Each structure stands twice: as C-alpha cells, then as structure tokens.
Computed example of a mutant assay.
Amino acid sequence: MIQLACPLCREPLDEQPGQLRCGNGHSYDQARQGYWNLLLVQRKRSLDPGDNAAMVQARRAFLDQGHYALLSDRINALLSQALAGRNTPLELLDLGCGEGYYSARLEQALQCAGIDAALTGLDISKHAVRAACQRSRSARWLVASGADIPLPAASLDAITLLFSRLMPEPMAQVLKPGGLLLLAWPGDEHLIELRRHIYTDVRPSAYDPLTQLSDLFSLEGQQAVQYRFTLSDNDSIQTLLGMTPHSQRLAPAARDALAALTQLELTLDVNLAVLKRR
C-alpha cells in the first residue's frame, strides 16, 4: 500500500505502530478504531464537517437492507472489467467513502475476480469513517478532505466517486496517467416518488459531471442502472429519509404525510461512467 503524504508539507509519512510521522516532524496518531485523521483543523469549514452521526447511522441501516446491492454489484462488475489485464498490485481510492458499504463490497468483488488491489477509503466525516472501519479491517480508512487528498501525485490506478462532490483537479493529481475514475450520480428519476412527497415542484436535474471533467478525463463508457424497489414499513421509509439531505428540508405537512406511509415503491436511477485520466 502506497505511503500517505503529510497534509501539512506533502512529505511522505512513515508508519510506525499507532503513528504516522514525516521527515519534518509532523505526526498523526491512529484512532482506536483504526483510521487515520489527516484533516487539519485550519482546513475545516465547521467543527464537525460532513455527515453527522445520525445520517451515518441511517445510511448504514438502509444500505444493510440490501436495496442498493444490485447497484453495488454493477459498480463492482464495471470496475473489475475496466481493471482486468492491468499490472497488479493496484492502488484504489474510494473518495467520499461514507460508512464503507460500497468500499467493502468492491474490495471483496475485486478479490473474487482475482485482482490484487489495495483499497483506501476517504471521507471528511469522522462519523462515517468510524463506521467504515467496521466494514473492513484490510482497507485503509482516512478522515481527510477530498480537496486535499493526502496521497502522492500520480500514485493511484483508480478512484471511485459515488454520489460525492466532484473535484476534478485533486482527483487528476493523484491518478496515474491513464488511471481510471468510476463515477456514480443520480439520474432524473432517482427516488422521484420520495421527492414528490417532499417538494411541490420536482424538476429534472441539470447536473452534468462529464462536462466538468472533460478537460482532464476522457470518457471510456457510460451506462444507467434503473430498477424499482419497495419499502414495506414506515421505519424503512424514515431510515431512507434520514440518510438524505431531503430530511433537512421537510415542511411539517410533508413530514406528517411521510410519517403516515406504511409502504413506498421507489425508483432507483443512477448513472455510471468510467473515465480515463488524460
């Protein structure tokens, strides 16, 4: 597994038992859960950035119900196919890894495909990374900013960015030339039934990440994943709501209507793309 880079001076970090230290004397202690916190205090925009503990707990509970397993399988198959035939071992980063559901499943899928890859998961939320540590003991987990990835330049073979903030330059910096980026973002119909319960005017999304990436990445392939699934009790509906930003925007009438639902049929609509670092 590649050495981490010091977030203060970018020098390589040597790993010692329970500690990272660079040649300039900057040191970082390992958390008892096993992750490394490389998010500098002066670079935080809030006291507790990223998803809070309640959102992380809700996301973990919802994902463990398996509703997004088919999506995860498609992501894993797409990346496994794209990486097949490359010289191993490979270095992978799950950027914005959240509580580690997709990361851990990807790690297992690559092993089953016979692809030797070391996986690093990174998220700005310490609550998410603490939960991710329970998903896999073999992956390396980091609390850090995706705008300042603590990895050496041109050190990664692939990055996955699933429903997370797009940062073209930092991603391109740490990818090798020809390295891969697997991107996932919501389609226009994604969870539209839930959104119709929350908003009076549901409009198609104008989000186009591929255009934003075109200067640094070439598109290798794109596909959509679409299927329907059903939540059969209100606890599951509330769990889904709690893991999304929609929960912060609920009007009282919408909250009451959702609280009364005992079943909700939903559409999963997600775009996947594989891009190559120019």
Rank of each mutant, 00 (worst) to 15 (best):
I198R: 02
L175V: 07
V174K: 07
P177C: 06
L161G: 05
W185G: 04
S205A: 13
E193I: 04
H197A: 08
V202Y: 07
S164C: 13
A158S: 01
Q173C: 12
P177G: 08
G178R: 11
W185K: 07
Q173N: 12
Q173M: 10
P168D: 12
Y199H: 12
T160C: 14
P168T: 10
D208E: 14
P209C: 11
V202W: 06
G178C: 09
R203A: 14
R195Y: 02
R165S: 13
L161C: 15
A206H: 13
S205C: 09
T160R: 14
V202S: 10
Q173F: 00
L191W: 01
L162N: 13
L181T: 04
L166V: 10
L191F: 08
W185F: 15
A172Q: 13
P168V: 02
P204W: 10
L194I: 04
I192K: 13
A184E: 03
T200I: 06
P204I: 06
A158P: 02
T160V: 15
D201M: 00
G178I: 06
Y199V: 05
A158E: 04
G187F: 05
L182V: 11
A172P: 01
V174P: 02
T200G: 14
R196C: 09
P177N: 12
D201T: 06
P186I: 08
L183W: 04
A206V: 00
L180M: 07
I198C: 04
A172H: 13
L183F: 03
M171G: 05
Y199I: 06
R165A: 09
K176G: 01
A172C: 13
L210A: 12
Q212I: 00
L210T: 08
P186W: 06
V174C: 11
P209S: 12
R203F: 00
H197G: 01
L183C: 06
I198H: 03
D201H: 13
I198M: 04
R203I: 09
P204H: 12
P170N: 10
A206F: 00
P209Q: 10
A184R: 01
L162Y: 01
T211D: 14
E169I: 10
F163E: 09
L183R: 05
M167T: 09
L180Y: 01
K176Y: 03
R203P: 02
S205P: 00
M167F: 00
L180A: 08
A206Y: 02
V202T: 08
L210D: 04
P170L: 10
H197L: 15
S205W: 06
I198S: 00
G179R: 03
F163L: 15
Y199G: 00
M167Q: 15
E193T: 04
P177F: 02
L162K: 07
H197F: 08
A206K: 12
L161N: 15
V202M: 10
E193A: 08
I192G: 02
L182A: 12
A184V: 11
I198P: 03
P209G: 11
Q173P: 02
P170K: 11
L210I: 15
R196G: 00
R203C: 12
D201W: 00
